[in-house]
Computed example of a mutant assay.
Amino acid sequence: MKLFALFAPILLVALSGCSSTDVVTDYNPRADFSRYERYTIADSSGADKVVSPFIVDNVKESLQRQLKAGLYKQADTPTNADFLVRYYIAEAAETVDRSPRLGLGFGSFGGNFGVGTSVGVPLGKDKINRNIQIIIDLLNPADKKLTWRGSLVIELDDRDPKVNANTIERAVTEIWSQFPPA
């Protein structure tokens, strides 16, 4: 039991390092979000040129589902909108997924003292993960000034577009769940 008490804090710190990226939000505290009912998608929405148009379409469709689920209505004209919605998809830093490694450990344990060493032997090639950042902005339609922003970095799957669509849906849902600010 003493051994568990010794290693529990170390395990918690290690697991907290494995948590996913959180949504980052910012907003204008003077904005009155309770008046937001009708929206229009800003013409300046889009993505970096390297981002697939399919990814852009998935983000737009997912965002429109979230707006509809939040009981927001699309304005018939931009002048009738209470807020503009702008989305942008940017390529984020790629990460390297190290291949599994085989560890050989040697050590001793005597009394209350332990020593250990390990040697890692790579078992395959490193994998480069493609990441994108989804940014959702809400703008004041009169002056086009930013009132709220939410963003999240996600990892894309290079092999399965269906997995990407699901990942994007979850990401946009997670971003939109932070609106309105508390």
Rank of each mutant, 00 (worst) to 15 (best):
P29I: 05
P29G: 00
A31W: 04
F33S: 02
S34M: 02
Y36D: 04
T40V: 14
T40R: 13
S45T: 11
G46P: 06
K49H: 08
V50S: 13
V51N: 01
S52A: 11
S52V: 02
V56Q: 10
D57H: 09
K60E: 15
E61L: 12
L63G: 06
Q64A: 10
Q64S: 09
G70D: 14
Y72Q: 13
Y72N: 11
D76R: 14
T77A: 13
P78W: 07
T79N: 10
T79I: 09
A81R: 03
D82M: 05
L84D: 03
L84M: 11
Y87D: 06
Y88T: 02
I89W: 01
A93C: 00
E94T: 12
E94W: 02
T95S: 15
R98K: 10
L102R: 11
L104V: 14
G105M: 05
F106Y: 12
F109V: 08
F113E: 11
F113D: 09
T117Q: 09
S118C: 00
V119W: 03
L123G: 07
G124P: 03
G124C: 04
G124K: 08
I128T: 13
I136A: 05
I136C: 07
D137H: 08
L138A: 08
N140D: 15
P141S: 09
A142L: 11
L146W: 05
L146E: 13
R149Y: 03
G150C: 06
G150W: 02
S151M: 11
L152T: 03
I154M: 08
L156W: 01
L156M: 13
N164Q: 09
N164I: 04
N166G: 15
N166L: 13
I168M: 03
